[in-house]
Design a protein around this nucleic acid. Structure first.
Lengths: 316, 316
DNA sequence: TACCTTTGCTGACACGTGTTAGCAAGGTCC
DNA sequence: GGACCTTGCTAACACGTGTCAGCAAAGGTA
């Protein structure tokens, strides 16, 4: 469209005098685009409280969305509340695309939408389903954590899974850790495993169960939040960390560095996961021929005090 | 409107067959209501990361909004990024109302909007400005914390303010705590005060400064997040908590109970603050004659291990 | 001068819904 | 039987924008 400079200035001046602001709703109606992305949490509210990485994910998501001219709808919709609320977000044109946090393989609503080709990006993985997703390599990250503990010299090592193996991340971290041990001289089949349920309290119970059962030197807890409870239980049982029991966590939540002892853990790039999820979603929405793609972000082992690597003499 | 039962069923059946879903955008255009509330964070992103209560506030906000038929837009818009982005949320009809978290008295954009009568609810307080808001009684809550420490028997007590006194909550907690001491035989004018800046690291520095300066028995830290760093610094200085130094925090963030020692603190009803903020905003939006109201929620002193009340013998 | 192109602006239309006036059919009352 | 009401449905309009055809004026070419 061609507009003379003179007219352009006159129009802008008039707009200012009349305090004119374009109505986003009318614009949406005619363009057919909302410019909105929904961040959908499928966990129960109580469980979402325990997830200390969500704020960073959400901000990464928001910043990437804003950079591309989008806004973010915050939509924690637990599976139980379901009744098609997620489907209605798309069908009713509330948003252009959806990011799903904490997907579960028994989530029929999300599965239906993915199979119908809805613009959905998963934060996580859905084994057996082709879908656009953002995730880390849980298997390899946990494997590296295992190798670290082995390299320090520990042999009697246990695992506290932060959640049921129905959660693909819990399964992958468990499997990866075992693989890391297998490459050493440890026997994976004898590694004691306790399963927790996202919360610190569940971590404490899992640790109690492990300590009752075995004489361990080190424990891998596949979530920092769960590890906090586990460490507490270990101390209550009279174990000093890391002298009597080494602990390695996963996620690197903001306070991990401030715990006593500071927690050795695998850093999850939460902000980057959010940013990547937004970018993939926007690409999915804007491309004429969207291809399903998987983004895998790097993790990093953050060695602090709880694993004992800084204080324990190297193995003989 | 009167519709016969027969027609109603036929229409619903046809809607199902055609997979009809009402278009929310068209509905918004004609009604002039968006059914959206914006949660606006004014803190810098980095600082927002340190705030462990936001997730609960956000979920309380969301749940109340959904209960009233609204949705929530997540809009962290730091003051620096400003340039009218918040004003445009209302002027461009993105949302019906706004909840502002972390308001600052030097925030000209928000001040303009409030004075213009925009539908804004503050999470917090703005001294000297009549505005609808949700908050706790920071003064009285801190006063109760002081009285608790005094009742245990401590006399040499310091304060770590979690933020600059430019933040009204930091000022109120400081003042309230001093008042609580004044009612005892302590001399408020000699109470050492260090000022931190939201983060655990700033709390550690503040604690180091206090310990260098005085022989203290107890410290009140006006935020749990800051207290985590402060406790770490105290331990690094060789002080056992609570035997050598008692600590009381503020907020009761989710992990406060899992710290070692478990943190005695003032419980901030984060979920309720979010819920109340949404309700006030919706009332502001829907009422023809909206009156500015202030909602003040109750706090509760949660006594755990870090104050020593459970282990220290009562004062003689 | 006749014709074509370029520039710059105007007006009509469409998006999908909520609202409301209007209308036909049937019933009631005196 | 006529006036009036009730019931149940239909059709027109408005919300505020983006798009695009159309048109007038100016400029260029033969």
């Amino acid at each position: 469209m061609r507009i003379s400079e003179e007219t352009r200035i006159k129009v802008l001046e008039a707009a200012r005098q009349l305090d004119y602001h374009p109505d986003i709703t009318a614009r949406r109606l005619v363009t057919g685009k909302t410019g909105l992305l929904a961040y959908v949490e499928r966990q129960p509210t109580q469980q979402a409280f325990a997830d200390a990485t969500t704020p960073q994910v959400l901000r990464g998501l928001h910043d990437a969305a804003v950079a591309a001219g989008y806004e973010v709808l915050f939509a924690p919709i637990p599976i139980e509340d379901g009744n098609g609320r997620v489907e209605r977000l798309i069908a009713g044109r509330h948003v252009d695309g959806i990011i799903v946090s904490g997907p579960r393989t028994d989530d029929d609503e999300i599965r239906r939408m993915i199979e119908a080709g809805a613009p959905i990006v998963l934060q996580g993985t859905w084994p057996g389903l082709t879908v656009t997703s953002v995730d880390i390599d849980n298997f390899t990250s946990a494997k590296i954590a295992a190798e670290h503990l082995v390299s320090i010299g520990y042999r009697r090592i246990g695992i506290i899974a932060h959640a049921s193996m129905a959660y693909s991340a819990a399964q992958a971290r468990h499997d990866g850790f075992l693989r890391g041990l297998a490459d050493s001289d440890a026997d994976p089949s004898t590694v004691p495993v306790a399963v927790a349920g996202f919360s610190p309290d569940s971590g404490a119970q899992a640790m109690e169960a492990l300590l009752r059962q075995d004489e361990l030197e080190a424990v891998f807890v596949s979530s920092d939040t769960v590890a906090i409870g586990a460490m507490r239980a270990a101390r209550d049982a009279g174990r000093r960390i890391p002298q009597d029991l080494a602990v390695v966590g996963f996620d690197d939540i903001p306070i991990a560095v401030h715990l006593d002892p500071a927690l050795t853990t695998v850093r999850l790039p939460a902000y980057g996961i959010g940013w990547g999820a937004a970018e993939l979603t926007i690409r999915l929405v804007q491309d004429d021929q969207p291809r399903k793609s998987q983004l895998v972000l790097d993790t990093e082992l953050i060695v602090r005090e709880s694993c004992g690597a800084l204080t324990r003499p190297p193995p003989d």
